[in-house]
Every structure is written in C-alpha cells, then in structure tokens.
C-alpha cells in the first residue's frame, strides 16, 4: 500500500539532512508504528508521505497503481490524498461548522462518490465506531473520544489504501485512548488498508504489527 524508497529531507540552511535515503513499505492490512524522539522528523516524514511537504529526493508510492507522490504537482497530490489516504490527527480536526454526518461525507464529496451511496456508508461507519445515531449532531456537543471516532470514520469512509495517524490518542485519557486505538486497528484491518501511526507511546506501538524507529541515523 505504501512504498518509500531513498527518501531524503533537508531543511533549508541545515548542515545535515533530517533523514536520509529512508526505505520502508507498509502492506495491505498491516499497521506500522513509527516511533522516535521529538524533533527527529516523524511528523515531517508523515507530511512528505502525504505530499504536504516536499522531500529532497526519493520515491513515495501509494496504492495499487503506485503513483509517486514526490513527482506530482500540488493539485495531483491533493487528488491522490483525497483518493488514497485517510488521516487521523491528535487534535481531531473535526470541522465545527459541519454536522457529524457532513464531516464524514467530506472525503466522499472530494472523490465524487454518488450521493445515493453517502447515507448508507456513513450510517454503517457510525455504527462500526459506536456512534449510531450521531449523524445529525454537531461537533461541539461531542466528547474528545467521540470526536476522534468521528475522525476515524472520516478517515475510512472513502476506503483509502493508506491511513496516516499522527498521535491519534495523544489528547485522550488512557481508557478512551485504548478504546479508540482498538477501534482504529480493527477498522484498518477490516478495510485491508495499510496504516502508519506516529506515536510516542510504547503501549500503542506494541499493539501494531511492526515498529519502525526513526533516529538521526535512519530507520530501524
């Protein structure tokens, strides 16, 4: 689902690369944890994979036809992200002015999925994430755990090839965090997507299929 080859990133003016010639892959249905100390470049790596930042060299291939994100222009990257990637963030990032159902529908709209399919897909996903009947509600009335469930539903609704999650439980208390993590892993595996989860938590990392540790020396 994700193949990274020779990925190098150097901040302008920096004497050495943030990371150099990284090479790894994430398979279908596989959940990989990305760990490392603060400032080592985990979020930057995630941004490069998503096409939000430019890498200096390397290839990033996502999905069945393995388009190279690194070589696409801005509009094509946006289109590839819309089609192949689902995101889950630490700060939830649920749009406050859209209802829960409308939030989940955003990727469907971006991918021009026929509107007749929206309601069944959204309702099914809401049931799967334990928010049955929450569609018409507004984000302001939801708890942190519920908001993150909405974000997970939104990340999965368009059946992406790859889920990128940046500290998905960082803002949740341990009990809710455990529930949300289990839900995320379960849904990713069920959808046969690949997932790359950036985390500081050893516990979360150990729940994943594989752990990649990023350090100044590279990936281990």
């Amino acid at each position: 689902m994700l193949s990274v080859t020779g990925l190098t990133k150097r901040h302008p003016g920096a004497s050495r690369a943030l990371f150099n010639a990284l090479r790894f892959a994430v398979g279908a249905g596989e959940v990989v944890a990305l760990v490392g100390e603060s400032g080592v470049g985990k979020s930057t790596l995630l941004n490069c994979i998503a096409g939000l930042e430019d890498a200096d060299a390397g290839e990033i291939r996502i999905g069945p036809d393995a388009l190279d994100m690194h070589r696409l222009d801005e509009a094509a990257r946006a289109s590839l992200r819309a089609a192949r990637i689902g995101f889950v963030f630490q700060a939830f990032h649920v749009l406050p002015t859209l209802s829960v159902a409308q939030n989940i529908a955003v990727p469907l709209l971006l991918n021009r999925v026929p509107s007749t399919e929206h309601a069944p897909r959204i309702e099914a996903l809401l049931r799967r994430v334990g928010l049955d009947g929450f569609g018409p509600r507004w984000p302001a009335s939801l708890s942190g755990g519920e908001l993150q469930r909405v974000a997970i539903a939104r990340a999965l609704v368009h059946r992406p090839a790859l889920i990128l999650a940046d500290e998905p439980t960082g803002n949740l208390d341990p009990r809710i965090a455990g529930e949300v993590l289990s839900l995320l892993l379960e849904q990713v595996r069920e959808e046969h997507a690949g997932a790359l989860i950036v985390t500081h938590s050893r516990h979360i990392a150990e729940c994943c299929d594989r752990i990649l540790e990023l350090s100044p020396e590279g990936l281990r």
């Binding site: 939000l52 509009a75 289109s79 992200r81 995101f87 990032h93 955003v106 990727p107």
Partner: peptide, 14 residues
C-alpha cells in the same frame, strides 16, 4: 485550520 484540514483531506488548492 479547517481549510488546511480540507487541503490535507484532498481539496485541491484551486
């Protein structure tokens, strides 16, 4: 932040 999120989710710059 909302527009950035939509951009991350795939809303093209145009």
């Amino acid at each position: 932040t909302q527009f950035a999120l939509l951009g991350v989710l795939g809303l093209p710059p145009r």
